[in-house]
Design a protein around this nucleic acid. Structure first.
Lengths: 200, 200
DNA sequence: TCCTTTTCCATACACTTGACATATTACATC
DNA sequence: GATGTAATATGTCAAGTGTATGGAAAAGGA
């Protein structure tokens, strides 16, 4: 058997290099050659792991989603087996906002993902399915919280879910330095507090 | 005097062509040549009106902001001289969301603007200043509404402003078809209703 | 009629891109 | 050590990029 490298790990290394390029220079500069340079390998090596540039981008984007989900799972361990839905939602939202370096990298990647999806049928499907799945997850949490009496029964689960996800709209304000990260957290907490205000 | 064309009008024509390219093919395809083709002129002609590609992009982006502001002003005329702040905010938000073709074009342009601002110092300054200005406008409306007793005095103007602007976070959900435009409007109205719930 | 000024355009240049083809290196097994 | 194959490096090519340049076309004043 010839030399065997961890294929998955190599792809992740390249994906992280791509993140850095996207974060520092924008997705337009995320060419095979520049990503290769950032990763410290030849562009031929990148081609060995990704047949096309698009394949590389799609992997890097999916990987960003996975990493975000992973960070949420990590943070949730501190809250035990059955975390309060407010804490759960708070972790999800704060990990989606660009409040620390890792989250910023994946956030920017997501933004580029969405923008790309608007004129690429393939990516559109992937992004929509991913977002729809995430949205259903949140709606399920909201419905359960209503059933548990933690959110007022007069609230509409679908609308509350949409309003929760809308909080990611704070991203441009944070990224451009219009508001401080603390102000964003205050807004998130304020919204969650009102949502769960009917709690016993 | 030599032939005189309306310089401003020509630049706006090119800007609109750029919007169409951005909307249909993404900002990556907004090259001087492709924009020229979309506008039905030579790329030399485009160069006559914009010395560089960046100048063209910046103009198209600023023009998008102006057009959005214009649409808001137009819609507001129906509400008379002193519109209710809730109506004012509702118009501002709905014109920022991609709920009709014009708004979608400018919304996508704005999204590209923000993404570009993250790694371009020049655009960063412009985008931040523009957003900061818009945010101050909204905060002023909120403060006045509190002073007028239309919003509860217990509300923090800064946080409420941030939560209002966060509603633009519905954009990706709408654009990718995760939620229907009506659901977005429902969410906006729900949020506004609660904000003004303390009204006499 | 010529001249000046503005508008517009074709071309050229240097450069980057993605994709592909080819060459080289590294290493586990026979 | 020979061999085969995965991993990596390098080269090539057509297509596309931004922009500099030179000059045509148009329109009015002299």
């Amino acid at each position: 058997m010839p030399k065997q490298v961890d294929h998955r790990e190599r792809r992740e290394t390249i994906a992280r290099a791509l993140w850095r390029v996207v974060e520092q220079r924008g997705i337009a500069h995320a060419s095979v050659r520049e990503v290769a340079q950032e990763a410290g390998i030849s562009h031929g090596a990148v081609q060995h792991y990704f047949a096309t540039r698009e394949e590389m981008l799609v992997f890097a984007m999916d990987f960003a989603s996975e990493q975000t989900a992973g960070r949420v799972a990590d943070s949730l361990r501190a809250f035990g087996d059955r975390p309060h839905p407010r804490d759960l939602l708070r972790v999800m939202l704060t990990e989606m906002l660009p409040l620390h370096p890792d989250a910023r990298a994946t956030s920017r990647m997501s933004a580029a993902y969405v923008l790309e999806a608007l004129h690429d049928a393939n990516i559109h499907t992937r992004a929509r399915d991913g977002l729809t799945h995430g949205r259903e997850l949140v709606e399920q949490i909201v419905r359960q919280a209503i059933a548990d009496g933690r959110i007022g029964a007069d609230r509409d689960p679908a609308t509350e879910t949409n309003l929760l996800l809308a909080l990611t709209g704070l991203t441009p304000l944070i990224e451009l330095g219009v508001i401080e990260p603390e102000a964003a957290l205050t807004a998130v907490d304020q919204h969650l507090e009102r949502l769960f205000s009917g709690e016993a």
